[in-house]
């Protein structure tokens, strides 16, 4: 049997160590770029501005004398231009007013009850 030369094994070991460290560095770079993507996607997907805007316009509209027309405007436009179901009602019971908002864009559903005197 031929003699196996076992000199300088630490050089081979160092070679392995360096190779593995490169491998893990590449893994870190690979993963780091995906982090922002998932964050940005979830921010875009959640309709924060839509809901905020809808609450604002509903708050403005409930005291408007032309409320039935405005309510229809908001429901129809919301369905046609934003693809979201939006219904709201306001009920006056004695001196208290209750507003119920229902919002659903297929991904996020939002319901809210307001009441004020």
């Amino acid at each position: 049997m031929a003699r196996l030369n076992d000199d300088a094994q630490w050089i081979i070991l160092m070679g392995f160590l360096v190779s593995f460290s490169f491998f893990f560095l590449a893994l870190v770079i690979n993963q780091s770029t995906v982090v922002g993507q998932t964050t940005a996607e979830s921010v875009i997907e959640f309709p924060k501005n839509d809901i905020r805007d809808v609450r604002q316009v509903i708050g403005q509209s409930v005291n408007d004398p032309n409320l039935p027309v405005i309510r229809n405007d908001i429901t129809v436009l919301s369905m046609n231009r934003k693809g979201s179901v939006l219904k709201y009602t306001n009920i006056t019971n004695g001196s208290a007013t209750y507003i119920q908002i229902h919002y659903n864009n297929g991904v996020t559903e939002y319901n809210e009850n307001w009441s004020y005197l």
Partner: peptide, 15 residues
């Protein structure tokens, strides 16, 4: 892995 990482980078950056 390195080549793959750069191709993902564009998509993440756009978002």
């Amino acid at each position: 892995l390195v080549v793959n990482a750069t191709s993902v980078y564009t998509a993440g950056d756009t978002h």
